[in-house]
Nucleic acid binder design. Sequence first.
DNA 1: GTTGCCATGTAAACTGTTACATGATTTC
DNA 2: GAAATCATGTAACAGTTTACATGGCAAC
Lengths: 185, 185
Amino acid sequence: MNDNSLLGFALLGLIHQQPMSGYDLRKIFASTAWGTFSDSPGAIYPALGRLEARGLARATVLESSSLRRRRVFSIAPEGLAAFKEWLMQPVTYDDVIRRISDLMVRFAFMDETVGVERTEEFLGEFATQMAAYIPTLQQFLRAHASKMTPSSRLALECGIQEYEMRLRWARSCIALYEQKRRNQA
Amino acid sequence: MNDNSLLGFALLGLIHQQPMSGYDLRKIFASTAWGTFSDSPGAIYPALGRLEARGLARATVLESSSLRRRRVFSIAPEGLAAFKEWLMQPVTYDDVIRRISDLMVRFAFMDETVGVERTEEFLGEFATQMAAYIPTLQQFLRAHASKMTPSSRLALECGIQEYEMRLRWARSCIALYEQKRRNQA
DNA sequence: GTTGCCATGTAAACTGTTACATGATTTC
DNA sequence: GAAATCATGTAACAGTTTACATGGCAAC
């Protein structure tokens, strides 16, 4: 009864959009913008097996006019509940430091699964934690720049720029959702 | 005789700068911009043990006027060789898609360990692979934007902006190193 | 009739996480 | 003398990687 890994949640999110086989999921990871995930069968099939064992996903074997078996996975009610719970978690300071990719995957599935309201909330939390973390990095850079080698300083600057970019991105998303809301009202 | 993990290489790089104990390394991960690494003892002590077992690092016990033992790790010649080999690896397309953080850690240690020349080469390879990958993401976005939910589209846009930022960063680094070289000549 | 792709999986080895454990030293 | 911090580790477990394995189908 353990928590799912990021891969497990990504699989849940994808089969929630549309039931799929392990092979379909592998193709998605191999050929789309989800390419940061590994498409290795040794990762995906065991992960699907765990989802099934935990009652979060269900497999149905299709026999469509051929002997070749295909197991199509779909999300179970318990799986949807666990997935929503994952999406609803507040954004912590630790998340932005060590689990940025988790946050982005959560965001990608968010508005279709838990609604626009929670998505806007999430962006606010994300921006808050980001805005809190960036100054600590800048302070560290100021304090240590003179003792650092050029490449390590440049690497840190790249990291800071990445966080700054994500903060700008989050704020522009917030503005966009707000604008949408006003247009609807 | 397996390869080291990213954590293993990071530890090698840090004890190459200056011999340190496991606790020192934990403090670095807990309190500096290296915070993306876990400072858990269950990660660091076994990783140091592996480095030692593979002959890449050496521990010497200090008894400085107290009974409290402190094992200070320093890099072994074989460790330095392995570390340099890691830094010298060419940047692949797969690296930019799935191992960006590895690349940034490599870069951070690069100029002090394998010299400015290799660092400039590395930046060129990095920019090339980045410039090759970005258009595929943009094409994917154009092709699928209409079918995507707002948040998944925005998440993808964030990813693209991240890669664009890194490409700009790499190019500005290249310009900076070139300028330095000209000033010296 | 053989090459290559479709589709599924397993096994071993390794790494990292979480939680626990221990004892010494400093600070109040 | 109690609490916090220094400093080191271990154990159980889960997840990933790499490599291997299998058999059906399609094309040439």
